[in-house]
């Protein structure tokens, strides 16, 4: 489902963000991507989104070599992803409903289907009834759960989460992780970047460990 094949990423002035990374992730699994700040976790996730491309090697997701995805196919590809950000990236001037409905709206869903799916996603994250609230009226945990609802509303085959519990207390972090577990059990391939080793240790899932751009463990090659 997700395949990294000898992927490296160089920035200017000899700075290497990723060095010869190879691994494969299958559908229906939850994988943690761990490492300190600057280890290359976010760069790796950005290559799946893809908002960056490798300097060497290739990234294949759902059978698509991401470097060769044409401009027209890229939006279609991105609709098969669900992305959760550390700072949730909600639109402050839109209601919770509108924020969650955004991936459905760009995909061309009817209003009826949109309403049904948004309510289902909000129900899943425990925010049913908050459709009309503005993000500013919610707590940090609720905002993050809205971000999760937006990521899963389109029923993506791949869910990427970049430090999704970075701003949450342990109890809320556990709730969010439980949600990700449920999504992986429903068949999604979930990849979570985190530097919270204590949290990761509570779950028995595959680990990809990065250090200064190198994959220390969890890879296939």
């Amino acid at each position: 489902m997700i395949e990294f094949d000898h992927v490296s990423k160089h920035y200017g002035r000899g700075q290497d963000a990723l060095r010869d990374i190879s691994f494969e992730l299958e559908r229906g699994g939850l994988t943690f991507l761990i490492g300190h700040s600057g280890a290359g976790k976010s760069t790796l996730l950005r290559m799946i989104m893809p908002t960056e491309h490798p300097s060497k090697g290739k990234v294949v997701v759902n059978g698509h070599d991401l470097k060769s995805l044409s401009g027209r196919k890229l939006p279609q590809y991105r609709r098969s992803l669900g992305v959760v950000f550390q700072d949730h990236q909600l639109l402050a001037d839109r209601t919770v409903f509108d924020n969650v409905a955004l991936p459905l709206r760009v995909s061309g869903f009817s209003h009826r289907d949109m309403g049904r799916r948004v309510r289902a996603a909000l129900d899943k994250v425990g925010l049913l009834g908050k459709e009309r609230a503005m993000p500013g009226m919610l707590s940090a945990g609720e905002r993050q759960r809205v971000g999760v609802a937006r990521a899963v509303v389109n029923r993506p085959s791949v869910i990427l989460a970049d430090e999704p519990t970075g701003n949450l207390d342990p109890a809320l972090s556990g709730e969010i992780m439980d949600l990700f577990e449920q999504f992986s059990q429903m068949g999604a391939c979930v990849l979570i970047a985190s530097h919270d080793l204590a949290l990761v240790a509570r779950y028995q899932h595959r680990l990809l460990s990065l250090d200064r751009g190198c994959l220390l463990s969890g890879g296939d090659a």
């Binding site: 489902m1 559908r27 759902n62 059978g63 698509h64 196919k73 279609q76 590809y77 609709r79 098969s80 459905l104 995909s107 061309g108 869903f109 009817s110 289907d113 899963v152 389109n154 029923r155 993506p156 085959s157 791949v158 999504f183 429903m186 068949g187 999604a188």
Partner: peptide
């Protein structure tokens, strides 16, 4: 939960009316 493993089937076609 996931729609499909292919990018092709992730879109619910809205058609001209939706457009």
């Amino acid at each position: 939960m996931p729609n499909s493993s292919s990018t092709k089937n992730t879109v619910s076609p809205g058609g001209f009316k939706h457009y």
